[in-house]
Amino acid sequence: MTDRPENDHWLVRPTTIRLLWWVFCIVLALTVIAQFGFSVKGYFGVDGWIGFGAVFGFFACLVMVLVAKGLGLILKRGERYYDDGDSDV
């Protein structure tokens, strides 16, 4: 552990992370732009649309995280739940 960010591993310095975000966003954009060059075969129509995979992937994850979060409210218990009997969180 170091106090000054420049002494920490290069991968976790804020400048690197900012750079990684930029690279990531460019790659994301490229995957969508690439669809203009190579057509994605849509088996059911909609899945051939430009950027369908991107939108579908993003929203599928959003829904799954929200569903998990919601179920977590009901299902989550303390780590020692089964050891102690029925102590709640």
Partner: peptide, 12 residues
């Protein structure tokens, strides 16, 4: 391309 979009945007 479809799977790259699907996976990378899941990463986002």
């Amino acid at each position: 391309i479809f799977y790259l979009q699907l996976l990378l945007f899941s990463g986002l």
